[in-house]
Write a protein that binds this DNA or RNA. Structure first.
Lengths: 359, 359
DNA sequence: CTGTTAGCGCTTTCAT
DNA sequence: ATGAAAGCGCTAACAG
């Protein structure tokens, strides 16, 4: 119990305690007010509940003591963490750089900060990541590493109370809110480009088919080629991973084994396409003279491959922003049924890896 | 006040309360034990303080109710967040993918999860990021986005109580713990390679000189060239950013303006080198016939440029791991003076972008 | 072995 | 306009 100092001239003006981290309590003690007053004075929403004079004093003391708010503690009390999880399959895939920037930009102003985790397409790693994120009470998870068989795991996460949205790699049947982009359409555009150049024997180098976008690209491409009455040379197996190495391997096998080799290849992403271009060179063929190549994503290196890659642009930054916004929306309205958001239409970027078929 | 049920036969076996999130308290209520008993039963460190029978019951109830520990709350109590910040200058730079993986792997087993933030080399963005990380009470910050002029800001962060370590981009004068790699040596190796091929007029395309590694590379290269009595063709300005575009622009200007053009170029990172190769082509020159190029980093695209890039390998994964370990070390021993850790020696990877000078 | 009590740092009724 | 008291979910002495 402190004695009132209603009569004294100068108030005691306590010295800050040394050592210990400076908390709201310390500020209160030095400023001679109750902790709740400090809390209010420093809360932008509530600062005008406090008298001008006291507020100024509190602010001054806070600054002087070097007070830093403790977001974890205030978050606990408020029931929020202002945190979310971004799960990517592979940070090495160049589209996740702009994607992640898009997310952070959408989040930036509102004080959310993302945990970023890389699942490496490993089921048990993913499981650990999701559990960890849930236990840290992230307010939402932006999942870009989904394979079709992960639906159950993701729905369980949602059931446990953490909203999950999917982007880039969605799971259409799951009912999870998603940021979509029209990969069927994108692949169709690629096919039309090649058909328009006069190709009649086309093939595709497919990515892992348990990943939605690759599956859609397969469909879009096949359907369009067949609709035009051209020949779709059947490929052997899809690439197990969307890596340069697998692109090289699968392309080599595909171009070597085939009788009546295709004159044009739709390679389902840029990373695979880099491997494909290399394979073509290694086989002693020339691109685009012997075989044309279309990639997908228009990542940062597409303009700089040899030859520069014709590819379908997917604006990963934009998709990331959309994902960030969608995540915020679902945080605000957890029960709203959210329409899939579109990440913008795919557009073909023509460079030098495509040309007319050899005569 | 609950009445004791000491005489009844079957214990009441309370039903879980619906709705509300299931906490340790709820588990305790259902399992008919005190919350602290639950806390202990579920804590791997303390589980054997609890009787076999009760522990099993608690575990069972916890599982049945779908109890998830609340890491934020327990962290608040324990005074830790098991969280750290990784600040990168640009996620688009391909070395930060393996770097970040290295960090997470070093951290994985011990339950730390990183926030990842991208400063885009923007001073005010960086300031915001550091403040935010500090207020979230990350236990350490791994800073890879440091420019020399950021020393003060970083030291202020340290003073505010959050340990900061630097990696990739260090600030030698700052005294911050760091993961170093020998860029002077790496550049020297590059120079020796070119000199060994017989080049006598060499130049370099420099990255931003307020960033330590670029500065060291400048020194290592110049020094070695001069020591061998060869001519170092002075360049105009360093690239303001380490981007493909700047690499192209600076290289174009450099090769065009120079009388007595150099026959070999040390380009201070792979991204710039991609631009440089492009510029060489655009000028109608051939690489390596007219001009040889050595890059730096050996990023994922180095084998796939045209021609494949001779470059100095920096093992970013390894550096990331070292940074993770260093961060853990400083978390455990905040006051230890930590020796700079080395991220492994630079090694030259010879591909096809270098050859003897034209005769 | 288990329960009691207090408290991490903060916010929020509810008083006054 | 400010203070008092309670509590977010959990853990850690300190009993017994």
């Amino acid at each position: 119990v402190t004695t009132t100092t209603a009569e004294g001239s100068d108030p005691p003006a306590p010295k800050p305690e040394p050592g210990a981290a400076v908390t709201i309590r310390e500020v209160a003690r030095v400023a001679q007010v109750h902790v709740s007053t400090v809390s209010r004075a420093l809360d932008p929403e509530k600062r005008d509940l406090i008298g001008e004079a006291t507020r100024q004093r509190v602010e001054e003391v806070a600054k002087e003591l070097g007070y830093r708010p403790h977001l974890v503690a205030s978050g606990l009390r408020r029931g929020q963490t202002r945190t979310l999880g971004v799960v990517v399959p592979d940070l090495g895939n160049p589209i996740f750089a702009p994607f992640t920037r898009g997310v952070t930009h959408a989040l930036g102003g509102v004080g959310y900060l993302p945990y970023v985790a890389d699942s490496q397409d490993d089921e048990v790693a993913l499981e650990r990541i999701l559990r960890d994120l849930a236990e840290r009470r992230v307010e939402a998870i932006i999942m870009t590493a989904a394979r079709l068989q992960d639906a159950e795991l993701l729905l369980a996460t949602v059931a446990s109370g953490v909203p999950v949205i999917t982007a880039v790699r969605t799971i259409p049947t799951s009912g999870l809110p998603s940021v979509d982009h029209d990969d069927v359409g994108g692949a169709a555009v690629a096919a039309e480009h090649l058909l328009g150049l006069g190709h009649v024997r086309l093939g595709q180098i497919r990515g892992p088919q348990d990943v939605e976008p690759f599956r859609s690209r397969t469909i879009g491409f096949s359907r369009t080629v067949q609709a035009h009455g051209a020949t779709l040379v059947p490929d052997a197996v899809p690439a197990p991973r969307a890596s340069v190495e697998d692109g090289h391997r699968i392309t080599t096998r595909f171009l070597r084994r085939t009788r009546g080799r295709p004159t044009a290849l739709f390679v389902q992403n840029d990373t695979l396409a880099i491997g494909a271009l290399q394979a073509i060179r290694d086989l002693g063929l020339r691109c685009p003279n012997d075989v044309s190549v279309v990639g997908y994503n228009d990542g940062p290196f597409a303009p700089h491959t040899d030859p520069p890659l014709t590819t379908v642009r997917l604006d990963a930054y934009e998709v990331g922003q959309a994902a960030g916004r969608l995540a915020l929306a679902i945080i605000e309205e957890p029960d709203a049924t959210l329409e899939p958001v579109s990440g913008g239409p795919p557009v073909l970027v023509v460079r030098s890896s495509t040309g007319p078929p050899p005569s």
